[in-house]
Design a protein around this nucleic acid. Structure first.
Lengths: 346, 346
DNA sequence: CAATAAAATCGGACGCTCCGAATTTGGCGT
DNA sequence: ACGCCAAATTCGGAGCGTCCGATTTTATTG
């Protein structure tokens, strides 16, 4: 049995397709009684209105050319204390969304949300999205656990551009921390490094369910000829933590989020890259000197998120997904002068 | 002056609107010379293709008559020594693909490939797919690293229903081993288990870049009040490996792939679930008694793979992806009589 | 040059919207 | 009761880009 159309509905009710169309969209041209009847019959027949199709048809009919673009909302949760790298990261994600969206015939618009479970603002957003007839959302990374359960989800389809969201459980698109760490350690291994060391602020890895350290621990165990160096972990990593750890365990290459560590290593007698290497785990972190790093590819993440949302919009699949999934993209290794080149002899 | 449409363009060039439409989208039905001419004229007239309009129209056209939109090939690499659980797993993936495909108007067909870099058979498959005009492929999990680089990839879009494929690098859809292990350990923790132990055959985890053990190691470190039990790892895990490890480290709950371990635990004096718990990491493994386990949700994986391929087909995106991605779905925890229920006191 | 095969192009139908036109309804004066 | 007009309601036509079967043109062969 094929899906009902306006025409089949019209035939069943003995009305014209135009009346059905107008009735379903609540046009004042149609008698209230008829609207009720039509909507009832539509529901019974299982007719589902596709707002995207409607919008395209409308613009097509109205302005003979077709400059119509669908709209994707990029939702940002305002966090006053967000670091500069996080801001730059989100900007790059936004650009990825926007570029891919416009390739697919959509335009992106930014919306900002107050932090926390701020009911009022969420309600207002709900109203705005509704009146503007926007159904597709991309939620940008927020350092807290965002709670958007207050939105009317039956009207939207959304993707979170980070690892995990619980309220509500949406599809996520994110960098693949685990695989990227594995790749990086293998790369360092082929360059002859045998004592990789990792330092990490607990807050960072906690959000990631310890994916950085999990990968580090596992690979350390199974790459040949590696000497295990315990990871340095603390709430706030400072020179006072770092130098003793570095002196004690003597890593020959250090991985971490702060390029400041290069200076700390030097102050402990290391020469970079001559005797010791360094890799910054996030290329967007502020850096005083050029540095080997991982590029999280935020543009790719935004692009993939946009694709996902648009795909669902086209299929008119609204609401919270039955089974949320996580789409990941590996980081790109950026060469830098803090590492020695690959050795040929191993 | 209103914006040009396909029809006005057609009139100017003395062609039909169909030819213009096909030409602008690069259909092989149109002569190359004509395509060039049409594109030139379109550019001169300022006609801009709107991908959203195109997508909506395409859906519209296709949705008529409920007729099938195409065939998805499910590619299986024949492996004579594949275990019964792997066979059952692939069957479940196939069902997931098939069901989701038919929901989206496609039907699935199975194809089998000889193992290894078997050029002949790959060429034959190439021919078959070509003559049958099949463009969408889902590659089923194979225990080796499949090499399909011999196919004419510019004609296909494909997804691998497993963690990783290198030749060529395709999008992958897979269970989320890392997250599932984290989830499982947290669940066990809330039930009061404090000495989780993991046994693992190396070959299994190696393919997964040690995701099972990576997650295990990391979570073990950061859940409160956990006593670390080193993982038991070997090529072939037997009772002779297991019992000494079990006696020595006294895990209070054991995770692993073989339900046979329940028997080994009993023979070492454990009472399941009274004193010790057990969770099977793969619910499809052969089991002698009911057992708590992780369901890999192969049906969901197949469904997601089908969605991905079909999405790309509808966008006419053929070839190897620019940036391959990995889509994961968490496992589902299956309750079983080998675990005690959650304690209230902690 | 006739007979085929292959390549290239065309035409119809599709769902939905907008807007002017057509039809029905209701109010009111006579 | 009836005619008239305006308001309320419904209808029909035209138009968009795509898909696919049908048709026309071109190339190939005996």
């Amino acid at each position: 049995m094929s899906a009902p159309t306006l025409r089949t509905l019209a035939k069943t009710l003995g009305l014209s397709r135009t009346t059905i169309s107008d009735a379903l969209r609540g046009s004042p041209r149609v008698k209230a009684e008829t609207v009720r009847r039509v909507r009832e019959a539509a529901k019974a027949a299982g007719y589902v209105h596709n707002p995207l199709t409607g919008a395209v048809m409308s613009q097509l009919r109205r302005s003979r050319g077709q400059q119509f673009r669908g709209v994707l909302a990029a939702l940002e949760i305002v966090e006053p204390e967000r670091g500069a790298h996080a801001v730059r990261y989100n900007e790059a994600v936004l650009k990825g969304i926007s570029d891919r969206a416009s390739e697919l015939g959509f335009k992106m618009e930014r919306f900002e949300l107050g932090p926390g479970p701020d009911g009022m603002r969420l309600n207002r957003l709900n109203t705005i999205l509704h009146t503007r007839n926007i159904q597709g959302l991309v939620l940008l990374p927020a350092s807290g656990l965002p709670d958007l359960s207050g939105l009317s989800w039956e009207r939207y389809t959304a993707v979170y551009a980070d690892l995990f969201i619980k309220n509500p459980p949406l599809h996520c698109v994110c960098m693949d921390h685990y695989r990227s760490m594995v790749m990086l350690l293998r790369e360092l291994h082929t360059r002859g490094y045998r004592r990789p060391g990792l330092f990490m602020e607990i807050a960072i890895d906690e959000r990631l369910q310890y994916r950085w350290e999990g990968a580090f621990l596992a690979v350390q165990k199974y790459l040949p000829n590696i000497t295990e160096v315990p990871a340095l972990r603390s709430r706030n990593i400072s020179r006072e933590d770092f130098v003793p750890w570095f002196r004690k365990y003597k890593p020959d290459v250090v991985l971490g989020h702060f390029p400041a560590a290069i200076e700390w290593m030097r102050s402990a007698g290391a020469r970079v890259p001559k005797t010791h290497g360094f890799v910054c785990l996030n290329s967007l972190r502020p850096t005083t000197e050029p540095c080997a790093a991982l590029d999280f590819q935020p543009g790719q993440i935004g692009a993939r998120a946009a694709e996902l949302v648009i795909g669902q919009l086209l299929h008119n699949e609204l609401g919270i997904p039955v089974q949320p999934s996580l789409t990941t993209i590996p980081a790109r290794f950026i060469e830098g002068p803090t590492l020695r080149a690959a050795t040929t002899g191993g």
